[in-house]
């Protein structure tokens, strides 16, 4: 094998290894038990106040489809259940799986998988290979939704 090709293969190998590492940082491994992910993706509890800010930030798409207890938000969607009371209906683990990859519960759901990058088609360049929300953001949102008890 010639040296240039060797070098090229080495570089390719290391770039795959690095992108693997980046992936591992962005998308955390998790274990599904029944209809839930019982353990925190980060190993730590999330922050409900940050979670509320994530849910109401238009960038994160929740309010495209959902409404909820957000009197200050003029535009809220009605494609899906109101978020009021979700903390009473579901455990933290169930909410976590619903957010991470709702397809696991209902393959036909229109709710995006917020912490998964597999099985997607024609993802725009800016978003390719990245989960919509980071593990920390998922935990913050879970902590917030758990507070919505009525």
């Amino acid at each position: 094998m010639n040296r240039a090709l060797c070098a090229a293969l080495l570089m390719l190998g290391s770039s795959i290894a690095t992108s693997g590492d980046v992936q591992a940082q962005e998308q955390r491994p998790y274990t599904i038990v029944g209809d839930s992910i019982p353990n925190s993706l980060t190993g730590a509890p999330g922050d409900p106040a940050r979670g509320r800010a994530i849910v109401t930030n238009r960038q994160n798409t929740c309010l495209l489809c959902h409404a909820g207890p957000f009197p200050e938000e003029k535009f809220q969607g009605n494609l899906s259940p109101d978020l009021r009371g979700t903390g009473a209906r579901w455990s933290a683990g169930q909410l976590r799986l619903r957010l991470v990859d709702a397809r696991r519960l209902n393959p036909a759901t229109i709710m995006p998988s917020f912490h998964a990058t597999d099985g997607l088609t024609r993802v725009g360049a800016a978003w390719r290979g990245k989960p919509i929300l980071s593990a920390e953001q998922i935990e913050d949102v879970v902590a917030y939704l758990a507070t919505l008890r009525d």
């Binding site: 238009r58 798409t61 309010l63 495209l64 489809c65 535009f75 809220q76 969607g77 009605n78 494609l79 397809r103 229109i110 995006p112 998988s113 099985g119 997607l120 088609t121 024609r122 993802v123 725009g124 978003w127 990245k130 919509i132």
Partner: peptide, 21 residues
């Protein structure tokens, strides 16, 4: 398609007249 994994049909056949935000 896309990061949100939606089809045109899901919005325009299945959910027309609803509010997207």
């Amino acid at each position: 398609q896309g990061q949100l994994n939606l089809s045109c049909a899901q919005c325009h056949n299945d959910n027309w007249s609803r509010r997207l935000s």
